[in-house]
Design a protein around this nucleic acid. Sequence first.
RNA 1: GGUCCCUUCGUCUAUCGGUUAGGACACCAGAUUUUCAAUCUGGGAAGAGGGGUUCGACUCCCCUAGGGACUGCCA
Length: 471
Amino acid sequence: MPDSASPVVTRIAPSPTGQMHIGNARAALFNWLYARHTGGAFLLRIEDTDRERSTEDAVQVIFDSLSWLGLQWDGEPVFQFARAPLHKAAVDRLLASGHAFRCYMSVEESNAAREAARAAGHALRSPWRDREPTLGQHNAPHVVRFRTPSDGDTVVEDIVRGTVRFPNKDLEDFVLLRTDGTTIYNLAVTVDDHDMGITHVIRGEEHLSNAGRQSLLYRALGWELPIFAHLPLILGNDGAKLSKRHGAQSVGEFQAMGYLPEALRNYLAKLGWGHGDDEIFSDEQAIDWFDLADVVKAPARLDWDKLAHINNHYLRNTDDARLVALATEAHLGRGVAIDDAGRAALARAVPLVKEGAKTILELADLTVFVLERRPLTLTEKTLALLDQTTRDRLQRLCVWLAGTPDWSHSGLAAALAAFAADEGVGLGKFGPALRGALAGGASAPDLASALSALGSDEALGRIADALSHVQ
RNA sequence: GGUCCCUUCGUCUAUCGGUUAGGACACCAGAUUUUCAAUCUGGGAAGAGGGGUUCGACUCCCCUAGGGACUGCCA
């Protein structure tokens, strides 16, 4: 194990084959937190050895996802495929030391051999592990496999799992080099983690069994093992593996749904780790408190309600300029045109409604009423409310409001209350009709807020529109 | 099938042998009320089951059950 005095080096190593999974984002977060907590480094490695599935776009998705999440990696990203010569050199060493061997079985043959081995109660053992190819065979198509010990256990010390042992007989002679000469995951990861000086391998539990294979490689290569920490999986709300049907599974989707990166960081940090009763905390606090020893073992389910609650907290504590920009973006994304008046109205409306929004998308829903164009289409319900008494009252209200100099929320709330008192009725007598006149069918906040967000010209104009509506 | 991991309120979790098992989200009720929310107050809600160890187990050990991961010339 690495010297405890040596600086911590962690890494996130996604493969560029599509979107960045939220589980991967959480792993990145924990690696980042641990590196920052210890004053160490957080590195990024792109695992692009699968040439069939790796794409340029997906590499960009990884950069974008990490950047959006605010998890800045240290140094230049390492591209795994570019390190192929180093991987092959390691394989040569393994071949020379007898820890690996050339296997001339075809895919079909190895599949059959694997089944036979399982039937016999152990994992695949290639017949070539103890056989020398003839001279003619030597360069025939082959893979290179690891010569897995037949007896004993491979022990993995894991910070969150404790001591985990895998019987070697159940670990097959896994492939190191494909027939085409390219390297495979376990070998590449081991060589890269070693060369990059990774001290702590923090990743999802799906890699726990790989830690056994990788440990075998580290020892065969004569290298010091890193400290392993396998994180519990993130499941969907129903306890099943997180997939498309759970609503979202990639960082990009969470972003598109209107979650703030800091809210997602906070929520994700609480999935598999926690600090007592603390629910909402800053990055500084998380960095200060984070420790691998406190990582939870059990898998966690994604709770959308709680994420929404946390997102709402961050939304209401975010500065208005940023929220207005985000809301504007959301409206434009929906094809809603916004002119200068609209921008101004949005700037007035956002601060007044943000407390009720759980996502940026909801913030857009709550502000769409200010972007409607006059004359608004009134709902049946509003039309029904506009009887003569109410019309007369709203007419007087317009006069009253026109004489109200303070169109701030509090000024209007006071004006509305004073008007109601003057009329000798409760707000309920004309509130619903006024709401309908101001917002049409769209949702709107409390009346004082709605009025204030619209501004006097627009608000009075909308009321006049409603009053002139033929019955 | 084999190997490995996991198991406290519906959910995320606290507890690290002695607590009325705490908090948060959600839920329910009440208050407020111009819609929906928001807000305030109160409430219900948990140690998978069975054996041990111990003066004493949620906590340690074993078994069972359930869930999950891996088992590939993917990562």
